[in-house]
Design a protein around this nucleic acid. Structure first.
Lengths: 349, 349
DNA sequence: TGACCTGTATGTATCGTTCTACGTATAACC
DNA sequence: GGTTATACGTAGAACGATACATACAGGTCA
């Protein structure tokens, strides 16, 4: 404060830097202690209205913003990580909007990582999120095997969207009832008098424990309904980079199915493309159903019947559960949304 | 270390916590100073191979990961913020992939913020990015007015994709040559013998200084080519939530244009939808052109002629420029990619 | 009156790094 | 052999917040 009597001090006075506004600056300006300001910031217990007002005024006046890095060191960073596998999947956009809806009035900021469907990247993003002392994590349709997710959940509060882990566990889940959705599609198609229904889905990656994916659950719904109705189960699989040709083969084949039920809208659009290209008419010659009810379904050139699962709602709930968990809840909670079928022209609707 | 003689110490021995692995743990294990470890981490000057090896071994063995929060306090956080306006626009996915391509071999991690096209949210995300001491920022098609961007660029290294600021400035830009792209479309259509070409674009928001948006530049390209060819300029505008009806009106109108050139693919798909719905044939009755060449263009039901601008390349370059800037470059650099027209059936290609 | 709360404010140790300044060998030069 | 570089390490002060322990009024109650 007063270096009046200390001439040879290395670099004391007249520091040219504009001097960042810190919690200390605010404290001085308001004439209170640093701790008091900190308390106001976290709205912790034991602050009088007068003090709060004074501090708030200074914060406003100085345009002070707390440093998340510094906060992260001892307390919370007020940042939540959201891990998406694939930014191209427009359905995820809805989930994001839901997350934003819930988080907007809170002090938490969501930041996204995009894994591009690669395990390696996914893992390194999770690490990055932990390294940055984020307060919580939302995994959307993760590729990681269950034990790994549980491991992550041990390190920070976690909520998973779009994965149906078998046993109980240490994290929350938010899902649409994919089995029910799968069944509903089959029942609807059968109600139209159709019997030769093929399920078109993703080739499972090498690992065994993928009982949890949404594709797998939709498949189970399909199988169970087909079996119940006494119909032949028929499943066609393709990898991400071979969808187009597989769709073409499927549509062009001699014993073309009466209907194709695709695990997701993106694949259904490919089927429509193949049919259009080959002159196979929809819905007269073949019916197509998707899943997700994304924004492209309603375009007239697609007019795709699809299962709506309200991504926005999924996102909202996930964020809500995560905050609850951050605030102390320990028992896992599993939230399920009931899907609904939206009928359009691709099934003659 | 030895509390042998201090019985009433509050909570001294046998701390049950698993004790986080910090730089100190590593230093002890490797038998060197904390500073030495830090130097290895940052591969700073003055570290012998032997020391580096020893430290690396300990890091590996202990599975140590530096805390980004702590780093952020004095040095870099090795985190880059990427700000997207709209996660639904699949074109942005490509940009993201490009960014990841460049960043993968570096120690930097990109984290995304999504502004949902709202100014408010955009601003608060930029603040969040600054608060988290991120090392740099990539803005994709920002809504912020230029002065505000320049203000941000003063606080941290910034690169902007998809905005053409007028004068020189304190940040880098990466763009496709939208004027050229706009001209190319008109020239191509005119080459097919068409003269009544309408440009279908977004209603400008209330603010005046939006000379910089990509829509605006595409429009300028359109206008300049039309004028040069002596054709009548015709521009149709709509807001985001009225595209569908505007497209319908446009397609249904008595003096329907011979071709519609849309500022982006998403809008072109809407035009195709309207045409399909109204029984107006493409390309016989009307031709449609988009911009971005996103993944839906090639589907047969769309088969949309579009301008390709290689989002991936844009992303790559942006990340490269940003790192250069973080490492000290000061003069602004402006990178431009030349777009190319991909002809498909929607123009009779 | 003294013991014990309760509500409010403060002082200070601490989080895990990086950075500046400095010390000590070893090599290089004349 | 003495000076001067150069390479390699270390000590210790930041960085900006939070958490914990404590201080101090004023009130309540035996």
């Amino acid at each position: 404060m007063d270096n009046t009597f200390a001439p040879p001090l290395k670099k004391s006075r007249a520091k040219p830097a504009p001097a960042r506004v810190t919690i200390r600056t605010v404290a001085e300006d308001a004439g209170v202690s640093v701790s008091a300001v900190s308390k106001v910031l976290r709205n912790a217990y034991g602050v009088s209205d007068g003090l709060r007002a004074r501090v708030m005024a200074s914060i406003e006046k100085l345009d002070y913003r707390p440093s998340a890095s510094a906060r992260g060191m001892r307390g919370q960073s007020y940042t939540l990580g959201v891990l998406l596998t694939d930014i191209r999947n427009v359905f995820f956009a809805e989930i994001m909007e839901g997350i934003n809806d819930t988080l907007a009035p809170t002090p938490y900021q969501p930041l996204l990582g995009v894994s591009q469907l690669r395990r390696r990247v996914e893992r390194s993003l999770v690490d990055a999120i932990i390294d940055r002392q984020m307060d919580g994590l939302i995994l959307v349709a993760p590729r990681m095997p269950l034990p790994e997710i549980e491991d992550v959940a041990k390190r920070l509060p976690t909520v998973v969207i779009g994965s149906h882990p078998a046993g109980t566990s240490r994290f929350d889940t938010v899902n649409n009832d994919d089995i029910l959705g799968g069944e509903a599609v089959v029942d609807y198609l059968n109600g139209l008098g159709l019997r030769r229904i093929t399920f078109f889905t993703l080739t499972e990656p090498d690992d065994d424990d993928d009982e949890n994916t949404v594709m797998m659950h939709r498949e189970r719904g399909y199988v169970s309904a087909m079996t119940r109705l006494g119909l032949d189960v028929n499943i066609e699989r393709a990898a991400h980079d071979t969808v187009a040709e597989a769709a073409r083969r499927l549509v062009a084949s001699k014993d073309r199915p009466e209907a194709i039920f695709c695990w997701g809208d993106a694949w259904a659009l490919r089927v429509i493309s193949a049919a259009t290209d080959l002159g196979v008419r929809i819905p007269q010659d073949i019916r197509v159903v998707g899943y997700d009810n994304n924004q492209y379904c309603e375009l007239a050139q697609n007019s795709l019947t699809s299962v709506d699962q309200s991504g926005r709602e999924l996102g909202k709930q996930a964020a809500r559960l995560l905050i609850e968990r951050i605030e102390g809840r320990r028992e896992p909670y599993h939230f399920t949304v009931t899907p609904s079928l939206i009928v359009r022209n691709s099934t003659g609707g």
